[in-house]
């Protein structure tokens, strides 16, 4: 994940987490851009598909990184999905107890993917790959 994407995720989490303050259970989710699936990129043929065709199908990349002055470039599409669950098992006790104890269990996962296409000096696709394909994003009711 780039510094730019990390900063965004952090900013969004700062916005999101205060929303999960009270109640018995909280389910939160943070999505950055639409996920790209393998079937979405099946049209890319190494040596044939051009940069314009990739952009027309997938949209503009989040990042273009040069491989050298004349050696091509890498287009990267970032997307992530984070899920967070928080259960306060002490919350129901407020109805039977003079004090309201908190017994909070929380958990979640951050799934981040980067789809990369390597272009040659003529902006023709040379290679493509999902840099990461982590399916860590899930709601966890039990943190242990």
């Amino acid at each position: 994940m780039t510094r730019k994407t990390s900063s965004l995720a952090l900013a969004a989490l700062i916005v999101l987490l205060p929303l999960s303050g009270c109640g018995f259970a909280t389910f939160s989710r943070l999505s950055f851009n639409d996920p790209i699936k393998p079937e979405d990129v099946a049209f890319i043929q190494p040596g044939q598909t051009t940069f314009s065709q990739v952009v027309a199908k997938l949209g503009t990349p989040d990042e273009l990184t040069p491989l050298g002055e004349q050696d091509g470039a890498v287009a990267a599409y970032h997307f992530l999905d984070a899920k967070y669950t928080r259960i306060n098992y002490g919350w129901p006790l407020q109805f039977v107890s003079p004090v309201s104890p908190e017994m909070i269990m929380a958990g979640g996962g951050l799934g981040t993917d980067v789809f990369q296409v390597v272009f040659d000096a003529n902006w023709v696709a040379r290679q493509q790959a999902f840099a990461k394909h982590v399916h860590a994003n899930r709601h966890r009711l039990w943190p242990f």
């Binding site: 999960s20 009270c22 259970a25 939160s28 989710r29 943070l30 999505s31 950055f32 990349p61």
Partner: peptide, 17 residues
Amino acid sequence: FLILVNFSRANIKSDDL
């Protein structure tokens, strides 16, 4: 925010030129 359960979701999208 309901009495028992809360749901929240943050969506981020970008424009690039």
